[in-house]
Amino acid sequence: MPEFVSNNISTINFVLINIALGLSIYLTLAVGLLSLANAGFMAIGAYTVAIIVTRAHLPLSIGLVIAILLAAMVALPFGMLVLRLRDIYLAIATLGFGEIVRITALNGDKVVRLFSQDKDLTVFSGAEGITLTYTTPKVVLGLPDTTWPILLFVIVSIYVLATLHGSRYGRIMASIRQDETAASTLGINVVRYKLLVFVLGAAIAAGAGALSVPIVRVIDPHNYVFGRAVDILAYAVLGGMTHWVGPIIGATVLTALPEVLRFLKDQRDVVNGLIIMLSIIYLPSGLADPRIWALVKRILSIPGRGRTTMGTGAGP
């Protein structure tokens, strides 16, 4: 492994996981939905894999597939129920969902024991969480074998989003975000696209949660509290909500920043909160704002095309 990679491998892992999480919330924001359920779906993914790996001793890949399917199966009926709510109401309902997932993880064992004969059956391990034994990851092609799946997952997610963005569906999503009523009068089935995006976002969040298991190794409910949902939101807000490059930039900056700000110790959240506030107030289109890129291009005097490739508010 190159020295830079081996020194910062945990930061790199978390940057990749957070990019995937940022992309998952970007999907819902791209149709104008504020869903704070992603931390909950991440928890579903992580717990599914942790349970499958530790209790059933199956490999991670099977766990990943089951985790994604399970999250999608939960997201579909939940989305059907709540997606007809608008802005703040949806945010609150999804916040409630995240809390219910957390409470389930915390107290699930009591319910499980109630229904089974075994009084010592342990599935979720409550507040202690599930701990995986540590094995030194093997280095394959210059990266640890725990990093490769995350990298591949992120690349696949980006590919899917980029394809969506440039396709008819991307334009449909942008039109729903800008004016839902106008979009529906044009014959777009708004509810169906919202549901599609919600389920896809849940699947990506669950995948990120699942792949984070070998890295964090201790899966406990405190990882998936309200603050986690806010972190994920911050990636998309800082980066920008109109293009998929936004959450990638946002997640990278916000994950690497605490390493730079290590001297602030437990007060790093001040900077986090400050960045969220400043970027939503003074930089509402995020760092991936086409105007900023146009400015950068002008300063570097790169002959740009008439329209930037970053996509305008109206989509490509």
Partner: peptide, 14 residues
């Protein structure tokens, strides 16, 4: 909503 979440973070951290 988002900016008040940011304010919450700052206050709790302080």
């Amino acid at each position: 909503i988002i900016s008040s979440i940011g304010a919450t973070f700052i206050l709790i951290s302080l």
